[in-house]
Computed example of a mutant assay.
Amino acid sequence: MKQRLLIIEDNEQNFYMMRFLLEKSGFEVIGAGDGKEGIEKALDTNPQAILLDIQLPEMDGYAVAAELTKHDELNGVPIIAVTSYAMVGDRERVLAAGATGYIEKPIDPETFVAEIVRYLPASQTDPEG
C-alpha cells in the first residue's frame, strides 16, 4: 500500500511539481487548493504527512496548521510547511503554529523527496508501505 501525502497548495504549478516528484517516488498524492478543503481532506483521507503552503486564500497556513493540531486523529502526522516565506522569524512562526518541518520554495527537485521522507516516522520511509 502506497504512503499517502496531502498537499495543501493553491498554486497549480507548485502543486504539479510536488505531485510529480512524489508520485515518481512511489507516493500517493492528494491535493487541496485551500485551507478549509485541506483540513477536510486531512480528516477524511488519513495521510501519512501533510505538505502545507503558508500563503493560502481565506485561511492562511498558520491557521490551518493550528487547526490540524487540534484533531486527535491527526496526532503524529507530520505537517511540513513548504513556503516562500523565508524572512527572519517565519520558520519559527510556522513551527509554533504546529508545523513539524519547514522547506523553502522554490523547491529543489533533486532533494525535495528526501527532505519529505526525513519527516516521516522511520516505519513509513518506504513509499510503498
Rank of each mutant, 00 (worst) to 15 (best):
E115F: 01
I103M: 07
F20H: 12
L56P: 00
P78I: 02
E58M: 13
M18I: 05
D72C: 02
V113K: 10
I54F: 10
M87G: 15
G98I: 01
G76M: 06
P121L: 06
S25Q: 12
E73F: 01
L22T: 04
L6K: 00
M59F: 07
L68F: 05
G76N: 03
F15Y: 14
A49I: 04
I54V: 15
A97W: 05
E23G: 06
F112S: 01
M87T: 14
N11H: 11
R93H: 15
L95D: 14
M1T: 15
T125M: 15
M87L: 11
E115T: 04
E12Y: 10
P78F: 03
T45W: 01
L21Q: 05
K70W: 08
G26N: 05
T69N: 13
A49S: 08
Y85E: 15
E28R: 09
N46W: 02
P121K: 06
A66P: 03
L22S: 04
F112A: 06
M18F: 02
P109N: 13
L68V: 05
F27H: 05
M17L: 14
M18R: 05
L95N: 09
T69V: 11
E104H: 10
Y16H: 05
I116W: 02
P57W: 08
V94R: 06
V94E: 10
N14T: 09
H71T: 03
K2A: 12
Y119M: 03
S123A: 15
K41F: 02
K24R: 14
F27G: 03
M17W: 04
V117S: 13
A32H: 03
L5K: 01
G89H: 11
Y16D: 09
D60A: 06
F15E: 07
D10F: 06
Q13E: 15
E12I: 10
K41A: 04
D90I: 03
V77H: 00
L95S: 11
N75C: 08
G129V: 12
K41P: 01
Y102T: 03
I39W: 00
G33P: 08
F27R: 01
E110A: 12
D44S: 07
G89R: 10
R4T: 14
I8P: 00
E40W: 02
D60Y: 05
A65R: 03
Y16A: 12
L51A: 09
E9C: 02
Q48L: 03
K24Y: 07
Y16N: 09
A49K: 01
N14E: 09
K70V: 05
I8V: 14
D126L: 15
T111M: 11
A66S: 13
S123R: 15
Y16W: 09
D72H: 06
V82T: 11
E37M: 12
